[in-house]
């Protein structure tokens, strides 16, 4: 039987505002399948988003949802998780939201290793505001604010996350949804800060300006340029030029932040108990 997405969606909020051919819907469905696979309860799950096309996801998913300010969903998520560590906390953020205006929050969330999963919808562009270039827009490509060619270097978000100390980092495409499902599930299961960079195509604002004639051609570009991590290891740097690696790029086990914090507070409880017992 086909998967029933409707039980996780706010069906009265449909249709969504994403353009035809946008990859966000594909990524959202993968997120839903992962939640379903792990049996997360709706009431115990909080989904937080920022501003932009990706930010709209919080309105569509039928959980406790929080649509925050531009670039800052991770800060709200940190407060929620620390105040109630029992909650499953998921953040969805775009490339502009996460890597430009929210860049500082991004690297510090990676460093802190708090048990939150961050799903980045990387579409290389600011879609909601009409196609301005973002920190992940490839050099040499065109946008409404790089009409003469983009000279900015491009951020590699997964490398940035690894460098900043994230304990789980994966990258997948909306072309390979089976692989995407797998890494989202693994990210949710990871105890610590997990990052999944999803390459989602924006055919309208990125694709049209950069020679992609259809939504399909963007997916095809993903197919041709995504290199599995295992394969990339045996390839020469020149062969990897212009391509990106996919799969679980980094994973390590490190004590999680809320666990460390509450272990610390429990040590006081014990010492207080000891003192009161001694007094008795």
């Amino acid at each position: 039987m086909a998967f029933d997405y409707s039980k996780y969606l706010r069906n009265d909020k449909m249709p969504h505002i994403w353009c035809p051919g946008c990859g966000n819907g594909i990524a959202m469905k993968s997120l839903i399948r992962a939640i379903d696979a792990l049996g997360y309860k709706k009431e115990e799950t909080v989904i937080i988003s920022g501003i932009g096309c990706s930010g709209r996801i919080s309105g569509y998913l039928d959980f406790n949802t929080l649509h925050t300010t531009h670039g800052r969903p991770l800060t709200f998520a940190t407060g929620i998780k620390l105040a109630n560590p029992k909650l499953n906390v998921i953040v969805v953020s775009g490339d502009g939201d996460c890597a430009a205006i929210g860049g500082n929050h991004f690297i510090h969330a990676c460093r802190r290793n708090i048990d939150i999963t961050l799903i980045i919808f990387n579409n290389y562009i600011y879609g909601m505001t009409g196609g301005q270039h973002s920190p992940t827009t490839p050099s040499g490509s065109y946008s409404t604010t790089t009409p003469h060619r983009n000279i900015d270097p491009q951020f590699d978000l997964s490398k940035l996350a690894i460098g900043a100390g994230a304990t789980f980092v994966a990258r997948e495409t909306t072309y390979n949804i089976f692989a995407l499902d797998k890494v989202v599930i693994e990210a949710f299961k990871h105890k610590g800060f997990s990052v999944v960079e999803v390459m989602v195509g924006c055919p309208i604002y990125y694709g049209r300006k950069n020679g992609f004639k259809s939504a399909f051609s963007l997916l095809d570009w993903q197919r041709k340029n995504a290199i599995r991590m295992e394969r990339a290891q045996s390839m020469k740097p020149e062969e990897l030029e212009g391509k990106f690696t996919t799969g679980i790029l980094h994973r390590r086990e490190v004590p999680e932040y809320t666990q460390l914090y509450y272990t610390l507070t429990e040590s006081f409880e014990k010492s207080v108990d000891k003192v009161s017992m001694e007094r008795e």
Binding site: F76, A83, L87, I107
Partner: peptide
């Protein structure tokens, strides 16, 4: 928690309050 900046502290405060703190 000492956050990475002033904006983040205020975000965390709002998040925590929404979770009941």
């Amino acid at each position: 928690i000492e956050m990475e900046d002033e904006i983040a502290s205020m975000g965390a405060v709002i998040g925590a309050s929404l979770a009941g703190a």
